[in-house]
Amino acid sequence: MNNYKEDFADKVTETIELNIEDRTKRMVAVGELIDTYVEAHGVSPDEAQLDRLSDYILREELTNTDRMKTRKEEYPFLSERQFERRRENEVPLEVAEEYAVDGRNYRLPKRRKRSTKELIYVDENARIRNELRAKRYKRDTSPGALMTYNLNESGGEFTESFVSCRGLGKRWLNEMSAVNDIEVVTEKVEQLTAA
């Protein structure tokens, strides 16, 4: 029972070894071979043998190794490697859903979770910065050196450092007038000058 299938496989091998150059002649030879098999046995040949015959008919397309055949030919046949390379370079359509014509990504932003290593790094740096801030705050808010003035020793005269602070409030008010409301500042200046 299997002898006729093996005989047909041998005939397919013989037909392929003929190596007919013209495609139409190849198609005629393959068609005659299949027709004689179907007339003799009443069933179609094995799928494996039909695959071999179809590969023989499409020999030029299957043996073309040109990388740019998809651009040069209208209906190219890709080898497995070419098909894999094409699949690697393609991007799914879901990616294009968020991108507009201007190239910007309009996807809703999604917050990324930090890894444990990143969290440890942030905590260490925050601790260092907090220590520096605490030192600066302590330095800036600590009282300065205590200065005593004895008017009996100076004969009732104020020292130069004490006198140089005179008018400091007015100077600050004038310098910060750009920050404060101008009308309020002018009222305060008038009140200070009147007093």
Rank of each mutant, 00 (worst) to 15 (best):
E88I: 05
S164K: 12
E187L: 14
A178S: 13
A100E: 12
S177D: 10
I57P: 02
L78A: 01
V163A: 13
T15G: 03
E32C: 04
E187F: 06
N174F: 04
S164N: 04
E88V: 06
E153L: 15
E80Q: 08
K72N: 05
I128W: 01
R85V: 09
D102Y: 01
L33M: 12
F77E: 09
L173N: 03
L78V: 02
L192P: 01
R71W: 07
L151D: 04
T186N: 15
E118P: 01
A194D: 11
E84V: 11
T36N: 13
E60A: 10
Q191T: 08
E14N: 07
L33Y: 03
L168G: 08
S161C: 02
K170G: 05
R104G: 00
L93Y: 05
A194W: 02
V189N: 09
K135N: 04
A145I: 11
V43I: 15
K135P: 00
D55M: 06
G169C: 09
D123F: 04
Y75R: 08
A145T: 10
R59H: 06
E160R: 08
I20D: 03
N180L: 15
L62F: 05
L53E: 02
G103S: 06
G155E: 10
N152F: 10
R81P: 01
Q191M: 14
E131R: 07
E131Y: 00
D181N: 15
R26S: 09
D140G: 00
R111P: 05
E97L: 15
D140S: 03
N180M: 15
K110D: 10
E84S: 10
N152L: 15
R111Y: 01
G169Q: 08
M27A: 13
Y149T: 13
E157L: 14
E190N: 15
E118K: 01
L173S: 05
N3H: 07
V122H: 03
E61D: 13
R112W: 00
E60D: 14
N19P: 03
E118L: 06
E73N: 05
K188V: 12
R67E: 11
G42Y: 02
D66T: 00
R129A: 15
L33T: 05
R111I: 12
R114N: 04
G144N: 05
L108D: 12
M147S: 10
T63Y: 05
K135Y: 03
R104M: 13
N19I: 03
